[in-house]
Amino acid sequence: MSDLRDLIGDDVDPEELNRLQRVHTLLEQAGPPPSLSPSLARPPASGGDVITFPRRYRPLAAAAAVAAAAVLFTVGYLVGNTGPSTEFTVAMSGSGGASGSLEIYAKDHAGNWPMRLHVDGLAEGKYALWLTRGGRLAEPCGSFAVAAGRANNVPLNAPYKLRSFDGWVVVPSGSKQPVLTT
């Protein structure tokens, strides 16, 4: 334990010295604060990222998203259930001719849903696949990079209960604006 006078010098009046001594004691009791790793440099993104639609289109967009998700989940299940381990396939679409399909394989014993995402027509860059709930980004399923002019086929994973979500979206890394939706 260090002596307070060694730290701040001797020319302190007794009243102030007494006050600072109590701070000194609290500092020694508290111990050092932990250092933050890079993963804690920013608050969690899933805290409230909202996919924004123009206000007048929000009811229509929400209804369309729910309907499309329900239909595509059903169709995807029927169409995609031909492979040996594929549970279902979900189609995704975006502007500018971008498209994608998400093949979901059988859930493993730990609760992971392995997936393979095929995307085409996206601009070069980094993207992330998210599960959505109620028009919000809910849980991430992984990130991937797209090279210019190439179709991509990337393995991803969703360690969640899929029934509690209503769709998937692909967003550019660091953005909340979807470029592909179910």
């Binding site: 730290l7 701040i8 010098g9 006050r19 600072l20 701070v23 609290l26 500092l27």
Partner: peptide, 24 residues
């Protein structure tokens, strides 16, 4: 060294203000 001590004292004063309730 004198500046180190002066700044440390200044820091403890700020902490004392911030921790007023804890000082009793």
């Amino acid at each position: 060294l004198g500046t180190v001590k002066t700044r440390t004292r200044s820091a403890l004063r700020r902490l004392a203000d911030e921790l007023g309730d804890e000082l009793g």
